[in-house]
Design a protein around this nucleic acid. Sequence first.
DNA 1: TTGTGATATATGCAAACGCATATATGTGAC
DNA 2: GTCACATATATGCGTTTGCATATATCACAA
Lengths: 142, 142
Amino acid sequence: MTRDNVTANTAWESLLAAHAALTRSFAAEPIWGDLSMREYDVLYTLSKCPAPVRISDLNSHVLLSQPALSRLVHRLAGQGLVKCGPDPVDGRGVLVSLTPAGRERQRQIGRQHARSVARTLTASLSHTELSQLTSLCQKLHR
Amino acid sequence: MTRDNVTANTAWESLLAAHAALTRSFAAEPIWGDLSMREYDVLYTLSKCPAPVRISDLNSHVLLSQPALSRLVHRLAGQGLVKCGPDPVDGRGVLVSLTPAGRERQRQIGRQHARSVARTLTASLSHTELSQLTSLCQKLHR
DNA sequence: TTGTGATATATGCAAACGCATATATGTGAC
DNA sequence: GTCACATATATGCGTTTGCATATATCACAA
């Protein structure tokens, strides 16, 4: 294996380790109520969408199989946090959007989670380093 | 929210997105056989340990609850890929290690996976950038 | 040495997941 | 229009997960 390949694999392993450690740390925060982090992730994704989104579009943001996401969305709908409606343009699609209750719940959790993320990451990295990390990760998923 | 906090949250979101996209891409490779990526992850972690490891030590490397990891390890033992033995020093502990078959299986999958990781990451980042990413991620989980 | 609390792993059980596939709708060739 | 194929979501089902808790062992004080 070439040196570059070793470097690439080391980088991936570091990213995995950082992801696991930080995720575990955030999951331990007592801010999630009766939601799982995955459910919150969907609420968060929806909160950044100006218009209703198809389940398949959501699926490209969430690391979950299509059936699992479909059921997750319907669970959230059952709790009144999202609304599922037909897509007028494509009868196969389902358009998902936050209800007011869902938006409120996302904001409430998101406020605390954002604080926690900021506290943890700024404890390890400078402003410049955080920007570098963002830039590198963005290059990675294109 | 301060500028630094926004930067930290942006960085975390980028890392999450990169992790999800790359994980999905690697999972799609037809190299895993009858193992899940989580099961491979345990084999890989074991392959880097010179001596048998306790389940609780494994658990700090794998993002999985203790009962789930315990059952995963016993599944792997049932397939003859790992060996579980008592810890002579601490009767509560279970020491886990790769069997020859497990080591062989890890190597076989690992070879192909490492190639795939290298191909994907070097396509997006230079050698220098990969080193920077490693350094930043390592700082993150301390 | 016995009791008390901590730690390592295992187990019962309901919930959630992934895979395969069904259903419904869209798209384009003929 | 209709047939064949592609796409979006849903459902059946066996497996895996997490939570709560049980069990076994350790550490150490009385």
